[in-house]
C-alpha cells in the first residue's frame, strides 16, 4: 500500500507530466483559456489515463515483452514483439477514448455534456501515450502500481492545467508587453510553475 501511495505522489508532483516532461502541452496551451474548460479536460485525462495505462500494462506483459507469451506454450518463450508496442498502444488508446466517451455519455450525461469535444481530442494528447510509454520504460512490478501511476499522472495534468487556466484568467487584466501577449507569456508562466514544482524533487520517496 505504501508503495502505491509513493508512486501516486511521485507521479503527481515530482514526475509531473506537464511541468517536468512537457507532455500534453498542445492541449494544455489550447484549452487553458478558462478554468471551466480546463477542469473538464483535466477530468477526462484522469479518466483515460486511469484506464489505458493498466490496459497497456497487461498488453505489454502478456503479449509484447520478450518471453511474455510463454503462457501460450513453451514454443513462444523467445518471441519478442516489443517493436509493435507503439502501434498497439495507440490503437488501445484510440479505442479506449471511444469507449470512455460512450460510457460517460450513458452513465454521466452531465459530465459528458460539460466535456464536449475534449473527450475525442484526448486520443492525440501526448500525455496519454506518454503515460503508457513511461509505464513500459519504468517496468512497474504489478498492475496496481501501473494503475496508481496512471491515475497519478492524470491528477498531475489536472493540477497543472487548472493552475495555468486560473493564472491566465487573471493575467488578462495585466499589462503584458505586446509581443509577449497570449502564447509567449503562457510559456514563461509555465516555466515558472515548472521551477516551483522542481522544489518537490528534493522529497525522497
Amino acid at each position: 500500500m505504501e508503495e502505491l501511495t509513493n508512486i501516486f505522489v511521485r507521479s503527481v508532483f515530482i514526475d509531473n507530466m506537464v511541468l517536468a516532461y512537457f507532455l500534453g502541452m498542445c492541449s494544455y496551451l489550447a484549452v487553458s483559456r478558462t478554468v471551466t474548460t480546463a477542469n473538464g479536460l483535466g477530468i477526462a485525462v484522469i479518466f483515460v489515463l486511469g484506464f489505458t495505462v493498466p490496459l497497456n500494462y497487461l498488453i505489454e506483459n502478456y503479449f509484447l515483452r520478450e518471453g511474455a507469451m510463454v503462457w501460450l506454450g513453451p514454443a513462444f518463450a523467445d518471441v519478442d514483439l516489443s517493436f509493435l508496442s507503439f502501434i498497439l498502444f495507440i490503437a488501445v488508446i484510440a479505442s479506449m477514448v471511444q469507449l470512455v466517451e460512450m460510457i460517460v455519455e450513458k452513465f454521466a450525461p452531465a459530465l459528458y455534456s460539460s466535456l464536449g469535444i475534449f473527450l475525442p481530442l484526448i486520443a492525440v494528447n501526448c500525455a496519454i501515450l506518454g503515460g503508457s510509454l513511461f509505464m513500459q520504460e519504468r517496468e512497474y512490478a504489478n498492475i496496481a502500481q501501473a494503475t496508481s501511476f496512471g491515475i497519478g499522472s492524470g491528477v498531475g495534468f489536472y493540477l497543472a492545467i487548472v493552475g495555468i487556466a486560473a493564472i491566465r484568467e487573471k493575467i488578462r487584466y495585466s499589462n503584458v508587453p505586446e509581443p509577449l501577449q497570449g502564447l509567449g507569456i503562457t510559456f514563461i508562466i509555465t516555466g515558472l510553475m515548472g521551477i516551483a514544482f522542481m522544489s518537490f524533487m528534493g522529497i525522497a520517496l
Binding site: 516532461y21 488578462r172 503584458v176 505586446e178 509581443p179 509577449l180 501577449q181 497570449g182 509567449g184 516555466g191
Partner: peptide, 27 residues
C-alpha cells in the same frame, strides 16, 4: 533543467513577434 526550455521558447516567441508584429495576439 526542464523549465528553462519553456522560458527559452517564450523568449524566442517574444523576439519573433517584436520583429513580426502582425503575429501579435490580443489577450
Amino acid at each position: 533543467l526542464p523549465p528553462m526550455a519553456l522560458i527559452t521558447v517564450g523568449i524566442i516567441i517574444w523576439v519573433q513577434r517584436s520583429f513580426n508584429r502582425k503575429l501579435i495576439e490580443s489577450n
